[in-house]
């Protein structure tokens, strides 16, 4: 199994891909997924995340088969949705 990772808007352009797969996922958090795909230590405050189409946080657990997405604040919103 694997984890599917999607990037949107300027994150997709900056990192050069819209979708990728992390093979042989052995468990971890949204923050761990971000580290693997971006090479950055921490999920930046201005990057939002979702797991399986629901908003998630850096410490949300990611399981085999999950879809994790990273994106900028939605246009129209300042900061994170409640």
């Amino acid at each position: 199994m694997a984890v599917t990772v999607k990037l949107f808007a300027h994150l997709r352009e900056r990192h050069g891909f819209g979708e990728t797969r992390l093979e042989a996922w052995s468990g971890g958090s949204v923050g761990d997924v971000w580290r693997q795909v971006s090479g950055e230590d921490e999920l930046p405050a201005h990057v939002l995340a979702a797991v399986n189409l629901d908003y998630a946080r850096a410490d949300t657990a990611v399981a085999d088969g999950d879809e994790v997405a990273f994106f900028p604040p939605v246009t129209g919103g300042r900061g994170r949705p409640r």
């Binding site: 949107f8 808007a9 994106f71 246009t75 919103g77 300042r78």
Partner: peptide
């Protein structure tokens, strides 16, 4: 919709 729905412009 403007603050919660994922759209990017």
């Amino acid at each position: 919709l403007k603050s919660k729905a994922p759209f990017w412009k």
